[in-house]
Design a protein around this nucleic acid. Structure first.
Lengths: 156, 156
DNA sequence: TTTTAAGGTCAACATAGTTGACTTGAAGAT
DNA sequence: ATCTTCAAGTCAACTATGTTGACCTTAAAA
């Protein structure tokens, strides 16, 4: 009767026939991104936040005092697209914005303590996943992974 | 006077201060996905197609005669979400659907010759990027990359 | 004082998805 | 033969994340 067992669609990796040598690599890139971000996204969702919010928090954590214009450039989105998630983070007091004394026309963004905690926890989820994977292959394997990803990332 | 040179936002990798050891890895995953899919997406855009269309073509190429229900499961999207891109591919005659003689109530999808060419070219763009990156690290590095990505991907 | 730069906001739109409700067509069961 | 079930198809309303274009405000610079 072949009652099709649901695959928990999208969660598990489909096992497709490989037409080419590198097909497995293409699929791993797809599922790798999901695997890395899944638990972080679940954590963020409990706070009513999502990927765009995390990206903002991540950048501001590493560039404290960044201006809104620079943030737009770094994230590669329009100011209108930045507007909503940024304002939510400000309302929630995960971020502060003040005008600098000298450059009074640009606003400088910083994380609050709550913002730091949130960013750290979200990124920790991602780092944990990567860390465990690196542990399986040792430092040389990890270095190879970084080298491959660097070469792929530079493909603009 | 510090005239800010535009960064060609989103295209180049931002060089952010690293707060943690693995921050570089997180960023590489983000930019890696973009780097791999960029040229394929550009090719697809010339045909008025995009990522969802490519995913459909990719799966059907590797599972010829797949039913719509199975495709939905594999892709992990709703049938309503599948509907538009699938119909476009059928209209464009990149895909065919016929009811099978015995299981006449499910439709079986196959690529046309044009569909095969399109899928192959799009995927070739991605394989080329990965292939060049693998060439830089040799077979052992490539194997390590696959192992790391497999471990990350299995993080459900 | 006028211009420019940075930021903010509004509207309209695109894309890629969701859920819910319903219809159609073919197969299987009684 | 009819009823039920299953696969597919469709319609509507909604969400999230982005885009352009237009316009306004505020503060600094010419």
């Amino acid at each position: 009767m072949q009652k099709t067992v649901p695959h928990a669609a999208g969660l598990h990796r489909a096992s497709l026939r490989k037409l080419h040598d590198l097909d497995a690599a293409l699929e791993l890139m797809y599922y790798g991104w999901r695997g890395m971000t899944l638990s972080a996204d679940q954590y963020l969702a409990t706070l009513g936040l999502s990927r765009p919010h995390h990206r903002i928090l991540y950048v501001v954590a590493r560039q404290p005092g960044v201006s809104i214009g620079s943030l737009i450039e770094i994230l590669g989105i329009s100011k209108q697209a930045l507007n909503r998630p940024l304002n939510l983070l400000l309302e929630r007091k995960l971020l502060t914005s003040r005008r600098s004394p000298e450059q009074h026309r640009s606003k400088l963004l910083r994380l609050t303590e709550a913002g730091k905690r949130c960013e750290q926890r979200a990124s920790d989820h991602e780092r944990k996943v990567v860390s465990e994977a690196f542990d399986r292959v040792g430092p040389r394997g990890a270095a190879a992974w970084m080298a491959v990803m660097g070469a792929i990332a530079d493909n603009n």
